[in-house]
Design a protein around this nucleic acid. Structure first.
Length: 112
RNA sequence: AAAGUUAGCCAGAUGAUUGCGUCAACUUUUGGUUGAUGAGGAAAGUCCGAGCAUCAUAGAGCAAAUGCACUUGAUAACGUCAAGCCGGGGUGACCCGAGGAAAAGGGCAACAGAGAUAAACCGCCAACUAACUCGUCUUGUGCAAUAAGGCAAGCGAGUGAAGGGCAAGGGUGGAAAAGUGAGGUAAGGGCUCACUCGUGAAUUUGGUGACAAGUUCUCGCUGUAAACUCUGCAUGAUGCAAGAUGUGGGACACAAAGGGCUGCUCGUCCGUCCCCAAGAUCGCAUGAGCACUUUGGCAACAAAGUGCCUAGAUAGAUAAUCAUCAAAAACAGAACUCGGCUUAUAGACUAACUUUACAC
RNA sequence: GGAGGUUUGGCUGAGCGGUCGAAAGCGGCGGUCUUGAAAACCGUUGAUGUGAGAGCAUCCUGGGGUUCGAAUCCCUAAGCCUCCG
């Protein structure tokens, strides 16, 4: 699990980011991000039922979390980010997901 | 050997590196170190049954609604399980069955067919009623008398299916009022008889019982209750988003209006209660618990003894990569907890049994 | 996590256990009208398999059952939708 200070939790927070934020597509991911007042970056992961049953959704969430955790310190800190899994993530391996996270973050210009 | 039936079991393992939740200890301060531990046989569907919680301390009667339905047992309980009974399927091992009542009552049964709960289209029948034909017959009539002939009635023989009788045979249908044979009859028919089949009642034997086998008497009845209904039994409602404790803010202003989770009647209780926000703590992990042994029981299961403590989050932990095992690949992720049912499921293994073929 | 509803032709949407492959509308096809089109009017039209054709068989989300007979009644599974903080 991500540390408490890095987590985006509340439904109103998600709604705010979806409403205000900008989007950026990767191969397996969709980033939605917006600036925030917090000092830390806050990350929420969203996997819809389209991806599959609960086992597949759990795996997608774990892969994304694993992919994001090395970059936590390198991301611009005053942002809220939601990572949405796409259907194509099913069956992917960890390094592929990590590469995609990196390239998408870079594309969105969120890295320091 | 092949094909099959039933029951049971497993549900990747080992090693290396990097990570996560919970608990404990230690350090120290909101971090770190060490150790322990961390998804299933279905965790699923939410189809049943319970615990637990609240609603009044959930009480009484009458209704309504819903569910269940062979027997005996098991169980906290069940629509579950076990052993049986009966019926059906299979060569067989074995499998399947919501399996009370249609003689309490009404409802429904398209099309086809002559006819659908009662019938007469084709068909069969001259015993009966009416009609017609015939006669080496009888009686009467007529005549003066006899004979022949005529007429009438009867008798006999025949024609004929209008009335009438019949339901054996025909074809329709899921269903046409039991089957075979004999007697009887105008023709026929359980009309009568014998045997068989089935219903109900009484009774004998066996069985706790469903029931089985037999005897006597009675009757011969369409199907449908997974439509209404009847009989018996059971059920108060809502579900952990139940609810308890606490925090912050607001409203009301001393009292009877009102309220109390299917309806009505009765009885009874509350009456300092309401709204909004946040989501802290508890509920929440020792339980109808798990493993092994013994005893009882055909079994389901029960009793006794010994040992064990085994996820508990709150946007939600149990993961990633690599190597080896021929290859890691099935269905699938706890969210208050148990007992079942149902559905999904790669591959591997064990035991018992059946049928067929071959060999001895 | 819990509670409910729904599924019928290409689309919308009726449907009493029997005369139901199934009302009606939209749509499609053909015709009339027009120089041509639109609109209007008239007629016709479900899908798949099989067959030369006439026709026959199957199909009301899937699979079972009850019934002589099921889109309809019962069981079971799946999809879609709604509600509860």
């Amino acid at each position: 699990m991500l540390k408490q200070k890095y987590r985006l939790k509340k439904k109103y927070q998600f709604n705010y980011v979806y409403r205000v934020g900008k989007t950026c597509h990767g191969k397996f991911l969709l980033l939605v991000f917006s600036p925030s007042k917090n000092k830390n970056v806050k990350i929420g992961i969203s996997v819809s039922k389209k991806v599959g049953n609960s086992v597949k959704r759990n795996r997608a969430r774990r892969l994304i979390r694993e992919g994001v955790s090395p970059y936590l310190e390198k991301i611009k800190q005053n942002f809220n980010i939601i990572i949405v899994a796409k259907q194509s993530i099913e069956g992917m391996k960890s390094p592929a997901v990590q590469d995609d996270v990196f390239s998408t973050l870079k594309k969105a210009d969120l890295l320091l």
